[in-house]
Amino acid sequence: MKVEIWSDVMCPFCYIGKRNFETALAQFADKEYIDVVWKSFQLDSSIPEVAKESYAEYLVINKGMAKEQVKGMLDNVTASAKQVGLEYNFDKSVMVNSLNAHKLLQFAKAKGLGSEAEEVLFRAFFTDGENIADQATLVALGKEIGLEKSEVQTALSDKKYEDLVKADIQEARQVGVQGVPFFVMDRKYAVSGAQPAQAFTQNLEKAYTEWRKLNPVSKLEITQGQSCTPDGICD
């Protein structure tokens, strides 16, 4: 069963939501039948590739929030992240456009490493204060999860991956995504926001029960004979 997750790597609740979803999935009895697909979403595509503001300054200048309000909000989010084992360092976060980061995600998805890419990108932005628009940084993050340097460099300059980012964002509009994180289960049920693990568990169970009825496990009556297996054993 497919679970699609729309997320922006610069969204603090997306990282928290990822952890809570992973907690629920780890405890889900039929997790081997769950296919997690990460989808791109940009909360603000107008942010420049070169950092001009801190995270707090960005909220004050672009969102019209008071400094005291921003400080209180970031302190609360940092505390929420800590509760699920995440370390947020907003004072170190580099506010840059997330498009290049999403291009890396799209390439990683094609290699079956979407979840791994999301993890290193979130950590780079929220914990380590790395520049997620910088190509050298993204190449290093790609290598960390097993991608080849030359392939990542090519992907970051290939318009195909930018088009995939835009396609995900367009699809989000069609699905009805108004904010992230947004988790869609079998295109029947959705969980919006960084909900507790229990909320994911409940929706996973409900969606999976319905999906399994339409996709029953095939039980074949097998007559055995001599054969060869993929590990090279023939008998």
Rank of each mutant, 00 (worst) to 15 (best):
F125C: 02
K71L: 10
G85S: 04
N203S: 04
D44T: 07
E205G: 06
Y55V: 02
L99P: 00
D168N: 12
S80E: 15
Q174H: 10
T154D: 15
T209E: 15
T229S: 12
V3G: 10
V77H: 02
N20M: 11
A108K: 00
L164C: 01
L141T: 05
K2N: 13
Y55P: 02
D8V: 08
K143I: 01
Y88F: 14
F21C: 05
D75M: 06
Y189T: 02
L99V: 10
I16E: 01
V70S: 02
Q27M: 09
C11P: 01
V184H: 07
C228S: 10
K18D: 13
V175K: 12
I34N: 07
T223Y: 08
A117C: 08
D231M: 13
E68Q: 14
E210I: 04
G129F: 08
S45K: 14
W38Y: 14
Q178P: 00
M185C: 01
F41E: 04
F126L: 11
F125Y: 10
L147Y: 08
S40T: 00
N215I: 11
V120C: 01
K67E: 15
I145P: 06
Y161H: 08
S45L: 00
Q195D: 02
S227W: 10
A51L: 05
E57Q: 15
A79M: 15
N76I: 03
L113N: 09
S98F: 08
D75K: 06
K52F: 04
T201W: 13
M1V: 05
K159P: 07
V120K: 03
R173W: 00
